[in-house]
Amino acid sequence: MIANFWNRILDWFEDRKDRTILVRSFNKAAKAAFISGAVPTLLTASVSRGDSSYRHQHSHWLYSGFRIVAFSGRQLSRPELKDVGLTVLQNPELSRQLVVLGFDTLEVQPNVGQFGLKWELRDHMMIG
């Protein structure tokens, strides 16, 4: 029982570290692409509360949303936001890693305006 408890503590630390590494790696790549001029918009990932109706077995109890904010300075159109979201969802490694690390919602929104899109990650895991 003590070993089980100890392993759960270790898993918690490990998961927290992996979540932080994932978000930081994404942001680092986005910054590098923006600085080099490869992309016109700076994408910034962060952890959010997520949608409670999208919960699954591995969902984090409080912060289960992976939010991508596009710093474009204008209201992005729906197809533009959809492209950003589908890029993450069509990458099987990234989408599976997100689910395993306790995320259940993918949110994409611009830095101006009220309009954003969100997806349920469980539907895009490409299992089987």
Partner: peptide, 18 residues
Amino acid sequence: EKQDVDYGNVIDSAFEAR
């Protein structure tokens, strides 16, 4: 490694792939 995801490709794809 766990860092197997090509984040550069993900970012580039978001704007250039379509």
